[in-house]
Design a protein around this nucleic acid. Sequence first.
DNA 1: TTGTAGGCGTTATCAG
DNA 2: CTGATAACGCCTACAA
Lengths: 337, 337
Amino acid sequence: MAERNQRRSVSLADVAREAGVSAQTVSRVVHGSSAVQPRTAERVREAMERLGYRPSFAARSLRAGRYRAVGLAMFSGITGTANMYRLDGIARAATEAGHVLTLVELGSEKRPTLSGAAEAMGALPVDGLIFNLTRRVADFEAYRAPAGLPTVIVTPFAHPTCPTVGNDERGCSRTVVGRLLALGHETVFHVAGASGSVAADERLEGWREALGEEGVDVPEAIRGDWTGASGYEAGSRLAREPGCTAVYVSNDAMALGVVEALRDAGRRVPEDVSVVGVDDSLSQVLPHDAIASVRFDNRAVGRRAFERVVAGAFDGEPEHVLVPGTLIERASIAPPS
Amino acid sequence: MAERNQRRSVSLADVAREAGVSAQTVSRVVHGSSAVQPRTAERVREAMERLGYRPSFAARSLRAGRYRAVGLAMFSGITGTANMYRLDGIARAATEAGHVLTLVELGSEKRPTLSGAAEAMGALPVDGLIFNLTRRVADFEAYRAPAGLPTVIVTPFAHPTCPTVGNDERGCSRTVVGRLLALGHETVFHVAGASGSVAADERLEGWREALGEEGVDVPEAIRGDWTGASGYEAGSRLAREPGCTAVYVSNDAMALGVVEALRDAGRRVPEDVSVVGVDDSLSQVLPHDAIASVRFDNRAVGRRAFERVVAGAFDGEPEHVLVPGTLIERASIAPPS
DNA sequence: TTGTAGGCGTTATCAG
DNA sequence: CTGATAACGCCTACAA
């Protein structure tokens, strides 16, 4: 009645038996070899169809000694603008290169480590590993890639032995601060993202550095949590700062909150205060392109990580790529009045 | 000088030779079998460490006849709120169940089909397939899952032979329309999402159905493209409609645009016009929880798709699961004044 | 044009 | 407690 529980998969040998040829001939047909008589080939194809033959990935890759697959470990979930676009970039590059992505989410583990991830992923169908980091991990410096398993880390930090690719978070701060100072602002205030986030911390540090280098007064930073609501709160405080004419906000949701709070407090944007965000995540959302922002090309970051990992083993000094962001100037910035 | 290009991977046999035991004993150590003398086990572990042994996924799954992996085909990119959360739900469920995700992006192909995707993925390390559909495909009805490869389709539509899981888009429209009519509105206007999107089209159709069932006048729908800018345009037109006191907008970005346009035109929200969006994608973004919206649990959709696919082959009628959305009531809706 | 042999790395099974 | 054998499905190399 019910179909038999077909545990074993249909193999070349099964097809061969059905078609009355050898397994080798079937293999040749599968690969479109011209060295098979058309009639034989036809018979084989029919048998394949009838039996529902599918090539075995396991057997092929055992034979080939490689998978044409790269492992991707997302260390803290895939949600979030940056992660999503990185994953998309990696997936597209992989597909174009005829590779497949073996995806693992480490978000549920509370303190994931690189070595732990490498150990777990070493037993998966992967020719190389990409680690996407958005927070710090305990064994970052100490990690060494397993032999024969090239590893690329997506992070703005350099690693002693593994190539890395990341957004130039400090450069982003430098760009924004430089532009606002060039417009004539005395200094630039900062609203940081959630503590513990590498992006938030690096942008914060870069902002300090940039102001320091220019010999400008460094105001106290305000810590947000990436949400618009936390931006609003920060904006309310900034509205009471007398010297505040320019604010650099670590993402666009908070920047939107800052703008709204400033306006609610009677300060005009950009006439009284300039505001710049990061990520350019709201350009499709806000009806009017309102908030200046630094756009990062996270798809490109993902793509480069993939390309680096399939390029294979590295000798000597690993490469550290920082992809710069682009400041999109919009109506929320102006010279101080 | 340079390390030898280690093409062949380190096998159990290599470790066995190094430790002076048989491959079988090494295998036992790898699996923590108690039937190995502690001293032998220690010797084996040292050899493994020294040689950098990693188990071969290919050999293991060839032996086992299965992969503990499910294939996920994203038919049109992974970007977008819904896709991202679905992928996250699938990835989490997979990781928890000790499975791995084999991800393929079909976004670059111009007219992907289910059968094409199944053919390509049939040769990958997968025990089952999940197809995430956000647009229509030509062979939806005609598709039949390959033997031994259970397939679950993520879509709001039923399929003759494959189980499906999806958001209840029509129910979403029904809920919103019902609520707005219950508040006393004469009818409900609609701003639809990009044409060709299954979600947009189903919400539109559901809106028509719901109004029709209530015997209420069905106004002409306005077609947007998901962006806030298109919402603003729609809102400008709606502000000129005399009978328009309630608008159901197919996502939150457009809803934001509608609200802004209405206000710019001098109409108050919600006193003059109520506005409801879908996706609840801006609750972390807008400083004040302003826009009522229907929240879908796309993580749950992903999770159920995964669970269904690992449950294995189906007999008889396939199940079609529609996960309902929840209307989050916020200050953008009120009875007509 | 077609077929046979061998081995990729692992593990269940049975023998010692 | 340890080892030998065979088989999973495929493909390169060689033979007929």
